[in-house]
Simulated scan of single mutants.
Amino acid sequence: MTRHLRAGLVGLGMMGRHHARILSQLPGVELVVAADPRGDPHRATRDIPIVATVEQLLSHRLDYCVVAVPTADHPTVALHLAAAGVPTLIEKPLAPDLPTARAVAEAFDAAGIIGAVGHIERYNPALQALRTRLTDGALGTVYQIATRRQGPYPPRIRDVGAVLDLATHDLDITTWITGLPLVSVTARTLARSGRIAEDLVTILGELSDGTITNHLVNWLSPLKERVTIATGSHGCLAADTVHGDLTFYANGSTRTEWAAAEVFRGVTEGDITRYAIPKREPLLGEHEAFRDAVRGEDAPIITLWQAAATIAAAEAVLTSAATGDPTTPELAQVPPATFNLAGYTLATEKPSSR
């Protein structure tokens, strides 16, 4: 009989409670301890010790750990776990800045242990289906990737702005579904909610093959929207990640004879298909992947170096917004890897700066 992996959790706040729920029911895993100096405010755990510090958590002989503390605290907790030799899954974003993200990635490389980051949108069924269809050539030549991610400000986010907390989703999604690096960004930000950090950003980008990207991200809208649209020579694919839906709008071959309709409906209009796709909880997929990676299996994890590349893109966005000029991300692509994990990579070489 295979031994259950002993898992720990650092942080029992708004996200930590969901990690606790998944870890408590994940096959092959036993959640044995959680750490949070405030205890368990959401009563997310049952019958396990709740300790105040990472040092106390490490006394429970862990096989791996999940970190769900504020972004500013990610590096301290992650470096402590790396020094202890504990494989770790860290909530996104990996760190508040690129030098710190690099330091965390280097620490896990030096320790020879797996580290991963919870860019949860990669596990959304709508985006997984969109990526598969892009890979299969469903859109022909891809022209544009556009995203909209907006909704009310979440009070739990206090240490970073909309770029690091929200736009990192879209920056990561875009390079992941296309397999192409982001080579240029131009951005503008606003701060209107009374917070120091920005709460609205609009980003225009370019991928290495010339594909145009644009992202609208904010905490200022009462409309909650999570949409990714890929447009190409055969039509467009629209992923609604709130509901896990993927819809294909095909370019049509039938000529429109009604001139007024043609004006409003575009040059061509074909069939519209909403795909029936399995809809599994993205957080469950994220945990399954990391569990399997800890077991030594091929698994679709997001490596620390991949997450560092996303931090680099976010910093380029902030730089462009501050200067008004286009900016090239310092890390434009994931570094080479020595082996693949089901189409993803575990990076074992450090990326060089551009």
Score class of each variant (00 low, 15 high):
L9C: 10
A72D: 01
A259T: 08
G194R: 02
P329T: 09
T348S: 05
T88G: 00
T76S: 04
E91Q: 12
V160Y: 15
L237K: 06
G296S: 11
I114N: 05
P125G: 07
E286V: 08
L164V: 02
P155M: 05
P282M: 11
T213K: 11
L284H: 07
S320E: 02
T319F: 14
L89Y: 07
G85D: 06
H4W: 06
T303L: 03
E349Q: 03
E106K: 10
A239K: 12
E257C: 14
A322W: 12
A299Q: 06
E288T: 05
V227G: 06
A342I: 05
L134T: 12
A35W: 10
A191R: 14
L94N: 01
T186H: 14
A309I: 05
A107L: 01
Y344M: 04
F264A: 10
G118L: 15
L130F: 04
I22L: 05
A167E: 10
Q128C: 01
T175R: 15
L246S: 00
P70S: 02
T71D: 00
G266C: 10
T53V: 14
G235R: 04
G210T: 05
V66C: 02
S221T: 03
T2L: 15
P282Q: 09
R61T: 09
E30N: 06
L164F: 15
A187N: 10
D325T: 12
E198C: 12
T141N: 06
Q56W: 01
V69N: 01
I90F: 05
E206A: 04
G39F: 09
V104A: 02
P181T: 04
A84F: 04
K92P: 02
E257F: 10
W219F: 04
T76M: 08
A101R: 14
Q144T: 14
D172W: 07
A105K: 02
L204V: 05
V183E: 02
T273E: 10
H243I: 02
I212M: 12
L207G: 08
G285W: 00
Q25S: 07
P93W: 10
G112K: 09
E315D: 15
A261F: 15
A146L: 11
Y249G: 04
A44D: 02
S233G: 08
Y249C: 03
L12V: 03
F108P: 03
A239V: 09
A197Q: 10
E225L: 13
H74K: 13
G266N: 03
P326I: 03
A44F: 06
V32K: 00
T247L: 00
V54D: 01
H4R: 15
L246D: 07
A308Y: 10
A230I: 11
V32N: 00
V334S: 04
S233N: 07
A293K: 15
G16H: 13
V142H: 03
P99V: 00
E206S: 15
P152D: 05
T202I: 05
L180N: 01
F248L: 01
